[in-house]
Simulated scan of single mutants.
Amino acid sequence: MKITKPPRAPEQRKRDLLDRLEKEMDVWVATAGTDGLPCLVPLWFVWHDECLWLATRPATPTGRNLRDGGRARLALGDTLDVVLVDGDAEMYDADEVPDAAAEAFLTKTGWDPRADKAPYVYFRVRPRVVQARNGEHEMRGRYLLRDGAWVV
């Protein structure tokens, strides 16, 4: 790849990140079990109240890992234009999820896990670290959020 554009300013990276969080439907969810076995799956998500909300079945490896470990790494994009989110995960049963989060999920995806016949749970992933870069030339300045606070 030939770099033809200058790196984006931090403020532009944040605007681009927030736009992606609103528009993109899928996020890669990486977790690990208590035995250290990694798991990587794509899930639908919604960005709501500065958190990513996911839904999955509680008995899946991802559901168990998020519940038991309370942490996840999420990724948007490809290797040239990537967003990485490290966050803390908190589980909500379908009857416990805040209505506003569940409605935001439904509005974005067209699916309501609360109404599904199979049991689903929601996870709120609160970002602790967010990185965004579009190519190697944006490695410097890639951290947009650290320790749960925006740095831009």
Rank of each mutant, 00 (worst) to 15 (best):
L84R: 04
I3T: 15
A30Q: 01
A59D: 15
T60G: 09
Y92N: 10
A118H: 09
P42V: 15
D88V: 15
T34M: 14
R8H: 11
T34W: 06
A89D: 03
K108D: 00
T4M: 14
F123Y: 14
D95R: 04
A75E: 00
P58V: 12
P113E: 01
G148M: 12
R142P: 11
G135M: 02
P119S: 09
V85D: 03
A94N: 03
V41E: 08
P58G: 11
V41I: 10
D26H: 14
G63H: 12
R15P: 04
C39T: 12
G135P: 00
T60Q: 09
G69D: 11
C51V: 08
V97F: 08
T109G: 09
T109F: 02
G110I: 10
T107S: 13
T31S: 07
P38F: 11
E24R: 02
D49A: 13
G70W: 11
R140K: 15
R73C: 11
D88Q: 15
V29Q: 00
V151S: 04
L76D: 03
L54C: 09
A118C: 10
R57N: 02
G70H: 14
D49K: 08
A59Q: 14
T62V: 15
A59W: 12
P113W: 04
E96R: 00
Y122H: 07
G77I: 01
Q131M: 07
P10W: 01
A118M: 10
A115I: 12
V29Y: 01
E138S: 07
M139H: 14
L37D: 13
V41T: 15
P113N: 04
L52I: 15
G33H: 00
L17Q: 01
D99E: 10
V46D: 05
R71I: 08
K14D: 03
C39Q: 09
R128P: 06
A72L: 03
A100M: 07
R13K: 15
L144H: 04
F123G: 04
R71G: 05
P119N: 11
G148P: 07
E24K: 00
M91N: 02
Y122N: 04
V121I: 08
L145C: 07
A149H: 12
A100I: 08
D147C: 07
G33C: 05
L144F: 04
P127D: 11
K117G: 08
V151H: 00
V151Y: 02
M25R: 14
N134Q: 07
T62W: 06
D99F: 06
R146T: 14
D16G: 06
E90I: 01
L144T: 01
V83L: 04
E103G: 13
G141F: 05
P61G: 03
R73E: 08
V85K: 03
L84K: 10
D16R: 02
D86K: 11
K108V: 03
A104C: 08
F123Q: 08
H48T: 01
R8Q: 12
L106E: 06
V121K: 02
T56A: 03
G33D: 00
L106F: 11
G36Q: 13
E138Y: 05
L106G: 02
M91I: 05
T79V: 01
T4V: 13
D16A: 06
E24W: 05
R71C: 08
G148I: 11
V130F: 04
V82A: 06
C51K: 06
P38E: 12
R140S: 13
A94W: 02
M139R: 12
E22V: 14
M91H: 07
A115C: 12
G69S: 14
L76M: 02
Q12E: 11
R15A: 07
T109D: 07
D86C: 10
T107Y: 09
